[in-house]
């Protein structure tokens, strides 16, 4: 079972940020503030959203001393209650696809606040797993520059590339013979 993740095509991306807005609104706000889990990155030549690749040997999972990050099938998931906010996963992730934000949690007894504590919250792509129609960024992208990549689509794409290579080999061979 290969990994499943969202990949952007910079040739189609117009840098409008609809994916980020969709991501913000699809997930529950953090302390009342909606925050996106993918980042639209622009260099001079490229515009493309970056998000978690749900790697098969994920450095974030390996780096977490509390097993807050773990595999749910092929997906890298988070157990929020285990996170201690050490930022190891943030450092380990080669995509910069994880962020940790602090939320305020208030404990009360009989309506009286006895503790205001800050709790770390791991922000990363969850592939909109609770949404039956799939990731919101993919469905809202108006140029269809975002696609879900999974084992099946990788197989198809690999096969397509091999067929093209084979056709190219045939042309090369015929020209070699002519020469």
């Amino acid at each position: 079972m290969g990994n499943k993740f969202i990949a952007g095509n910079p040739n189609l991306c117009i840098g409008c940020g609809t994916c980020m807005a969709a991501c913000m609104m699809e997930h529950p706000p953090i302390d009342g503030v909606p925050i996106p889990r993918l980042a639209l990155i622009k260099t001079r030549q490229t515009s493309v959203p970056i998000s978690c690749h749900h790697c098969q040997d994920a450095p974030c999972v390996a780096s977490c001393p509390e097993q807050a990050l773990y595999y749910e099938g092929t997906r890298v998931e988070v157990r929020e209650n285990r996170c201690i906010g050490c930022s190891s996963c943030v450092l380990a992730c080669p995509y910069g696809a994880i962020e940790i934000v602090l939320t305020t949690s208030t404990k009360t007894i009989g309506g009286v606040v006895y503790q205001n504590s800050r709790k770390p919250y791991v922000l990363k792509c969850d592939l909109c797993v609770s949404k039956p129609e799939g990731p919101a960024c993919v469905s809202t992208c108006l140029t269809k520059s975002l696609k879900i990549v999974d084992e099946a689509s990788i197989k198809t794409s690999t096969q397509d590339k091999r067929v093209k290579a084979a056709q190219a080999a045939e042309i090369a061979a015929s020209q070699f013979e002519l020469a």
Binding site: C16, G17, T18, M20, A21, A22, M25, T140, L142
Partner: peptide, 9 residues
């Protein structure tokens, strides 16, 4: 059938 971020949100 498409919208941008202002249309959606």
């Amino acid at each position: 059938g498409e919208l941008c971020l202002k249309g959606y949100y």
